[in-house]
Amino acid sequence: MTNLNIRNVSYSYPDGTLALEDFCLSISSGERIAIIGQNGAGKTTAVKLMNGLLKPTKGNILVGDMDTKEYTTAQISRKVGYVFQNPDDQIFHNNIESEVRFGPKNMGFNEEQVDKLTNWAMDLCGVKNYNDENPYNLPYSIRKFVTIASVLAMDSDVIILDEPTAGQDKVGLERLVHILKVLEEKRKTVITITHDMEFVTEYFDRIVVMANRKIVVDDNVDQIFYNHEVLEMSMLKPPAVTKMAKLLSLSDGITTQAQLLAAISEKVKQ
């Protein structure tokens, strides 16, 4: 059980660029949330603060009862695992199994547990068949799954995925959805940054919208994509399903394909 409490956090990069301003967010153990917003809004900075890769310039971040300022990144990352946006920033072994095994081994699990976690994560992420390959010979999308497996194998309570949907095909998206489901069953907290609005509306309820280094809104999905002010301020585009619902003059609040199909077939019957 690890709750996250981010209290009035600001962060400036060493060159003085302010990347995050007065950021407040509480995430309970086991929640699944999506962080969305334009490039440069501060999303990656926010999540790097949550796993201790960055330390706040102002304010505090509590991971469970640990203040990230008082612990090393290695200590925090036992609780909060972060999958980098760019897999090439993360991968450093020349075969997949040693890459995935590295995390749990360093966490001090015994041999048997390390085997079990490594196998489980490689299986779940669909990278087992590529085991003999050097990760750099694999396509970007598969490398991304290698990095997800490496973090999942550490069995941390909180998992942060930074743009897992980038460059994924249908098969990759389906795999991500399956991973989310398995992590929910294991009561893991999952925080995802993504630009894929369909992925957000189909699989997330709680959405944090960021713009200009701040949180614009933290709410349920149907409250966000039908709120003109929020969409304008954060320069978001609603998902295709919402656009279609508007074009058909259906009632507000439709954010998933299932809702759209139901509303259309209802209208056709009338």
């Binding site: 249908k170 998206l173 394909q257 199909l261 077939s265």
Partner: peptide, 28 residues
């Protein structure tokens, strides 16, 4: 098993549940 445009996917699902369409849309 490749992604469709979202509206085309919706259209095909509508046909599946018995809502006939005049043509298959590819744009919203």
């Amino acid at each position: 098993n490749i992604q469709y445009p979202h509206v085309t996917e919706v259209a095909l699902n509508l046909i599946d549940i018995g809502v006939p369409l005049k043509f298959i849309p590819i744009r919203n």
